[in-house]
Write a protein that binds this DNA or RNA. Sequence first.
DNA 1: AGAAATACCCGTACGC
DNA 2: TGCGTACGGGTATTTC
Length: 271
Amino acid sequence: MPELPEVETRVRELRQPCVGRTICGVQLDWPRHLHQLSPQQFAERIHGQTVTQLWRRGKYLIFDLTRDALLIHLRMSGDLCVQPGNSAAEPHTHTRLRFENGHELRFSDARKFGRVYLVGDAQQIVGKLGPEPLAAAFNARQLHTALRAKNRALKPLLLDQSFLAGLGNIYTDEALFIAGLHPQRRSASLSLAEAHALWLALRRALRSGIRHNGASIDWVYRGGQQQLHFRVYQRAGQPCLRCGALVRRIVVAQRGTHFCPHCQRLTRARK
DNA sequence: AGAAATACCCGTACGC
DNA sequence: TGCGTACGGGTATTTC
């Protein structure tokens, strides 16, 4: 579940305790987290490298190292924290990187979906991602052009990381509500004004998530307070905050999808 | 080629 | 109470 705002929150939490630290040991209890490398290859290659920067691209956390880049994707249930090496770890902690100062970067993941990458160039992993929705270079006209080039349903298209990086189920539903667009609307049918509304809504939903340090939901997800500000996500059967109609939950492309049937129409209302 | 469906996971919530 | 099972969610892989 960690989406862009939750990953951004991790970047802010982890930057200070990680940047400048040198990795002097690893413990890997679930090798399938590793991308391509064996535990031995991973341990030998990362040993002695220093974290020079920490940043984010889409939902990937990227630790720039002396020689390589360490990328971590939290997927559904992953979480990261830095704690003293002699302290008790969170349950489901499968991967640890020990720093020279005695602290550990701990990766816990109840569902074991998360992935760890160690590569020479981060672009090997994040190179195929779509634009960053919060970047200054990403504008409404560009979104409109991209939407028209596809003609897929909005919901699965916005979830496609090669189309736009960082959205997951929560913020996609929230943004479509803010924009007043039906999740099954065909992307090529949007006017420039509608694309602009979607562009604005995406940025508003994501910035709200970041401002509240992400969302905390579903027992596996440690986050901030954004769940107190959901407009439609997990609000099926409750009144729409804008018009009072009952929020509906449907399945679109195998994903639970929440929307207001009155505010987000598939076809234009006629009178 | 591109889009849709499936596999990977497992704690929880639910039905019987 | 206890057992069995469906569910969710992001993305790589498989299928269409």
